[in-house]
């Protein structure tokens, strides 16, 4: 490969990586909130599917991407409300409820899709890339960074906002305390359950947004199981990112990069490795990074434990 080819390759790779990372960024930042408050939600795959389906159904009926995104978020939060009720109010095991919600999300979206959409024809109009004067036309850099749609750009905003909320507001401070020392929060007169509800709703809302991006900002169709396991990858991203929103942003990008690289390397006729090796790469890397960044240091102390009020 000569230099020009390589630069083109790189520019495409980065652009694709960011798009592929976008659903992961939303969902993983959401899960950071939830886990920081001590709630481990493994039902994200189902939640993202609900977001993807709600978003698609709305946009299909109204032709509005914005309305679609909104219902995607609301659908995710509604699912989150069920999760919160069971894990926080009833204090059921978080893993159990998460597993149930995955089944429910996959089943419900597939059932409704099969029932109501015998044909979706050409699908929906999705969010188009925005053209930024001058920047979008830059060689290489333009393609990599400045030819995305608004939803992709908003990931930066979400990451910054999440960091500010988590570290610079009293809500964020209390929320983190809820995950570490719920008793102290309780003693201080704040409602642990309310904060956990809040964290779960933020988390599932963002997961819903991540799902909705798949149908409204990347592909224009809903397909059963369109999340293809992203809800599970998110769990790995959060651990790898040490429960930080900025970390989640960059780790998601790394996953997006692996995913894009895998697709692009396959297309290179000169590479003779079986493509399955490339497909397995992100998963193998996840395990390796878990070993390398080992230790529970940054994990919220009360992760996964219901809080018994005095």
């Amino acid at each position: 490969m000569d230099d020009m080819m390589f630069l083109t390759f790189l520019a495409t790779l980065v652009g694709a990586a960011w798009r592929l990372a976008t659903p992961l960024i939303f969902a993983s930042i959401g899960e950071v909130f939830s886990e920081r408050a001590g709630v481990l939600n493994i039902g994200l795959e189902g939640t993202m599917l609900v977001g993807a389906f709600c978003g698609f159904a709305t946009a299909f009926a109204t032709d509005s991407v914005l309305l679609g995104l909104l219902t995607g978020v609301l659908g995710g939060m509604l699912f989150g409300l069920v999760f919160a009720f069971f894990t926080i109010t009833i204090k059921a095991d978080q893993i159990v409820v998460g597993a149930a919600l995955n089944l429910l999300g996959m089943g419900l979206t597939a059932f409704l899709f099969r029932t109501y959409y015998v044909s979706t024809g050409k699908g929906i109009e999705i969010a188009q890339p925005v053209h930024i004067p001058w920047l979008s036309d830059l060689p290489f850099l333009g393609e990599a960074f400045f030819q995305q749609n608004l939803i992709v750009y908003s990931t930066i905003l979400v990451a910054i906002l999440a960091t500010l909320v988590l570290y610079r507001t009293s809500f964020g401070l209390t929320l983190r305390a809820v995950g570490e020392h719920p008793k102290a929060v309780d003693v201080a007169g704040r409602n642990v359950a309310a904060y956990r509800y809040g964290a779960v709703l933020v988390g599932t809302g963002l997961a819903g947004l991540g799902g909705a991006f798949l149908t409204l900002g990347h592909s224009n169709q809903f397909v059963e199981g369109i999340t293809s396991g992203r809800g599970f990858i998110v769990l790995a991203v959060v651990v790898f990112a040490r429960w930080s929103p900025i970390g989640a942003f960059f780790v998601s990008l790394l996953f997006g990069l692996f995913y894009a690289l895998q697709l692009m390397l396959q297309a290179q006729a000169s590479i003779v490795v079986p493509y399955q090796v490339l497909q397995a790469l992100p998963y193998i890397m996840t395990i390796i990074t878990l070993v390398v960044v080992r230790g529970k240091g940054a994990a919220p102390g009360k992760l996964g434990q219901p809080y018994e009020m005095r």
Binding site: M5, T8, F9, A11, T12, L13, A16, R19, L20, E143, L214, H218, S219, Q221, V223, E224, G225, I226, S228, Y259, A260, L263, M264, Q266, A267, Q268, A269, Y275, Q276, Q279
Partner: peptide, 27 residues
């Protein structure tokens, strides 16, 4: 005549199909 080929590994991930095609086009 050069032909490149890629498999996305499933039949559900429309975004992967899209990105695979985009990367071929860019190359």
């Amino acid at each position: 005549f050069p032909i490149s080929e890629a498999y996305i590994g499933n039949f559900t991930d429309t975004t992967a199909a899209k990105e695979a095609a985009l990367s071929m086009i860019s190359q």
